[in-house]
Design a protein around this nucleic acid. Structure first.
Lengths: 228, 228
DNA sequence: TAGATGTTGATTGCATGCTGTATCGATTGT
DNA sequence: ACAATCGATACAGCATGCAATCAACATCTA
């Protein structure tokens, strides 16, 4: 496989894993040194990630992990809610035993993580659960689109799942969604998924302003670190 | 603005304009010569278009304008239907006088083109009408996603609008959508847009097999042209 | 004659070097 | 003392060159 493709995955994974935070600078030279390749494949990887919205490539000014405005972030969550709700509706209509099994297994994994209060584990299993719903729509393209957006929002979802009671509430919402899909109730599945996702977005509206505040503080205090 | 960005737009426009058809090879050297630049910015443009799904970049085998399988194509239309329907629902909920005016103007332009039987003009005005609906959702991110997918499907929409009575039927469906949005009827707007888009997809199911047939024939007969 | 294998040609993938621009700091003038 | 302008440095953008790989064609064998 080509270097650029591997690097794209590696950088994307690093962003999803929280190694690079929104606002962090991604300069070509340091990444090239870190991965032991020249600047060219790094550039190609960065440009692709830019097209997918993970990072902002500002002409002549380098790439940074994208920092959507609060408004934009809410729009992204609202869009996620619409897409997930479409997945849920189709899943309810077309559920197969295999997809049912996959969703159930993922839900049980979430339950274990939630009871243990392990938010990192829940974060991972939550993604598997949602991906199972996407696949259950029996529309591979829609599932790909949903997963891409899910990844883009993962940095923000992670922060938000830190609150412990949110874990249990999220789990309960998952159960409701699963129940509706199993019952073949398209409308209910769509509504519950919509609310489940949008709840995150709304819970976020509060948090975002605080985060933006911290970002600005970090930017002011972190100049020396970046300059070093 | 950077060369790569301009080239990306230029190549994308050429694909949308039908200058490059699905399956056509896009080799770096000829594009570099055509645009008078080196291969590097061409490569960067192609990789970005690949990330956006316009073209397939097969490792070590060059890029071609993507040729989705009939199944994939139907999935794309179904996804488009879901996303447009979400736009319509939000537009009905949030309609402003400015957005109303934009949609109405676009609809009237469509009407002129349809009555004249000018399918190329209708193709252009149709896109403006749909884009007006996306913007009317008052969700910039959702609108961007919708427009990106609309562009990806434009090659197929164009073929299908060639049938003359389809123009008038499409126009009538537009009128119904607009009416529902104006009335603030979210459910009706969503349903009508969903059906409007999916009708294209279904009308396509027939056509796709024939197209695939022609593609194969062209590939067999066109080898010499490609080799020349 | 048909199939398989080796070789050649063409094209992609990556590295490196140079140029132009943006940012940061210093110096000068008000 | 503060602001503005000029210069230096560092980094992105692009071109070019080389190496690796894939595809096509020809040749050889069964």
């Amino acid at each position: 496989m080509s270097q650029a493709f591997r690097l794209k995955q590696a950088i994307e994974d690093a962003v999803i894993a929280g190694e690079f935070l929104p606002g962090d600078r991604l300069d070509e030279a340091s990444l090239a040194e870190r991965f032991g390749v020249s600047r060219t494949p790094i550039r190609e990887a960065l440009l692709q990630l830019g097209s997918e919205g993970f990072i902002d490539v500002r002409p002549r000014r380098g790439a940074i992990v994208s920092v959507p405005s609060p408004t934009r972030l809410f729009e992204m969550f609202e869009t996620m809610a619409e897409i997930e709700s479409a997945c849920g509706r189709l899943a309810a209509r077309r559920l197969t035993p295999e997809n049912d099994a996959a969703m159930t297994a993922a839900h049980q994994a979430c339950e274990l993580a939630a009871r243990a209060g392990d938010s990192e584990q829940y974060y991972a299993d939550n993604r598997i659960f949602h991906e199972a719903i996407y696949r259950a729509s029996c529309n591979g393209f829609l599932a790909d689109q949903a997963l891409a957006l899910h990844k883009r929002l993962s940095a923000y979802r992670r922060i938000q799942l830190r609150a412990r009671n949110r874990l249990l509430q999220s789990l309960q919402e998952h159960a409701g969604v699963l129940e509706a899909i199993r019952a073949g109730d398209e409308q209910l599945a769509a509504t519950r998924l919509h609310d489940h996702v949008l709840a995150q977005g709304e819970r976020f509206s509060d948090m975002v302003l605080g985060l933006a505040e911290r970002q600005r503080a970090a930017a002011a205090g972190g100049r020396s670190r970046a300059a070093k």
